[in-house]
Design a protein around this nucleic acid. Structure first.
Length: 222
DNA sequence: AATCGAAACAACCGCCACCCT
DNA sequence: CAGGGTGGCGGTTGTTTCGAT
């Protein structure tokens, strides 16, 4: 059923025509300036609706289909670490959106973990909430790195390397070579420009944060 | 084939933080 | 420093699809 909000903006499911207009608009003007998008695209939708549709559905970077076992494993680890910080979690699972991750968690994982067969005693876990986008935005805008809580370098031949890099040194998650372990997807931009936590970005302090993140994810001999 | 409930997916809402003036 | 505008997030609700009966 089609409806509209009090401002007369259309709501509900997007149609093919609307998708096309939005896509075209983003291709021409790029992402951002969402308040201008409805006008530019000729859409009777609110800015939030346009942004959400692009971010969660139309963006070419989005990976559709079932979560792989690796992704599920990573999701569980990240959730254990970060709690319901869906955007942060999605940022570490390339091609997945915060909405995807959230939906997946709420519809599958919660169910699995609450089923009597598979449920394990709930461990007391300390949820770390770095509020990374805030932190890193500050780091970028004020040219000041966030406090680097961790600083160990991964050892060659460690479990971490075998989990993240293949024998040729290619990152199994993002396909980047030369030992880079940036696992950031398109959401990276939201947090700190294009290079938030990467090993190779060097010098801005956030790479150490990433090291600690991976360590906390259970790659113990990092 | 029809109906119903559950599961999965898509979209909206309210809030908050940041940026700019 | 204050206030308005904007972007982005998490929670929640609505809609669609699927499977069982």
């Amino acid at each position: 059923m089609e409806s509209s909000n009090p401002e007369g903006k259309k709501r509900g499911t997007w149609g093919r025509e609307e998708d096309m207009l939005l896509k075209k608009c983003i291709e021409i003007f790029g992402e951002g300036r969402w308040h201008l998008v409805p006008l530019r695209a000729g859409l009777n939708r609110c800015r939030k609706s346009c942004r959400l549709r692009w971010v969660n559905y139309l963006s070419p970077d989005i990976k559709r289909g079932c979560f792989t076992a690796d992704e599920v494993d990573l999701l569980i680890r990240l959730h254990k670490l970060l709690g319901n910080k869906w955007s942060l979690i999605a940022g570490r699972i390339p091609g997945r959106t915060a909405n995807d991750v959230k939906n997946f968690w709420n519809t599958r994982i919660v169910k699995i973990s609450s089923s009597p067969k598979t449920s394990k005693p709930v461990e007391e876990t300390k949820i770390i909430k770095p509020i990374a986008h805030k932190m890193s935005k500050l780091a970028v805008s004020k040219n000041k790195p966030p406090p680097p809580p961790f600083n160990e370098e991964p050892q060659q031949n460690s479990q971490w390397f075998s989990n993240v890099l293949d024998t040729a040194g290619t990152n199994k998650i993002n396909g980047i070579q030369n030992g880079s372990f940036s696992v950031g997807g398109r959401n990276e931009k939201s947090y700190a420009g294009d290079n938030y936590p990467t090993k190779t970005d060097g010098g801005d302090g956030v790479s150490e944060f990433s090291m600690g993140l991976w360590k906390l994810l259970g790659f113990d001999d990092v």
